[in-house]
Design a protein around this nucleic acid. Sequence first.
DNA 1: CACGAGACCTGTTCGC
DNA 2: TGCGAACAGGTCTCGT
Length: 274
Amino acid sequence: MPELPEVETFRLTFLHGTEEVPSLVGKRICRVSLLWEKTLETPSAEEFETRIKGQSILDLNRRGKYLLFNLTQDVLVIHLRMSGDLVVETHDDPIAKHHRLLIELDGGTRLAFNDTRKFGRVWLVRDSAPLLSHLGPEPLDEAFTSEVFCAMLHNLNRQIKPLLLDQHFIAGMGNIYTDEALFLAGTHPLTKSDSLSCDQAEKLWQAIHIVLTEGILRNGSSIDWVYRGGDFQNHFQVFRRTGEACYRCGTPIERIIVGNRSTHICPKCQPVPD
DNA sequence: CACGAGACCTGTTCGC
DNA sequence: TGCGAACAGGTCTCGT
């Protein structure tokens, strides 16, 4: 699940709280428990446990797909990768099968990092900037204009879908939102970036804004056996709709492989480039 | 530089 | 029913 809108949903949930989940802001970390060693990228498990203890959660930020917990001294950085999930529970809740890291807060609350496939990673750092320095622009940032986007596209001769998935190029797009944006823009995923006109680039820029904004509005997407309360999966135009009719023209949606990833297109609305 | 394949992991679904 | 193959929201590294 976790692409930009899903990570943003976690941020907003933990920042403001919801009917079911209390806000985590102001809570103090009293104990942590690392259940899968490799989940923690840095520092060592021993240093992590002693250093994080006693720090409070002051604020929550996001950069691309990274979730950032601003603590009293450090920043706790979490990347959910393919199957990561964050669950707020209580100290005496049973420890679920795929829990990898438990962060106990005072007041009896516990933040659990659950990650079936063990791809997710956690860092505790003084300064998050070096860790995030490889990331491209934030797609919803005001500085990321359609003119900037068009110039960036023309600098490279790359297939557009793998390029949008490349976090160095732009931060936060994943397989779902990329397929949805390319459909909305009427762009075939194999189109070379420098062959897009600025008109087409602007259309794609708008499509990216539309899908990310709607994704955030709908609290992200919840698919497969993992449910996180999001609703955007009920509004997919192409993603995982192979064989079903395109809502725009009725043509069956096709599944192809681009850059080693499943890709969903309407062959009529997204014609193959020359 | 651009691209594909393989690795990292566990679980579910598909096809015979 | 059983069993292996294919597939899954991400990212890194290597070879061509």
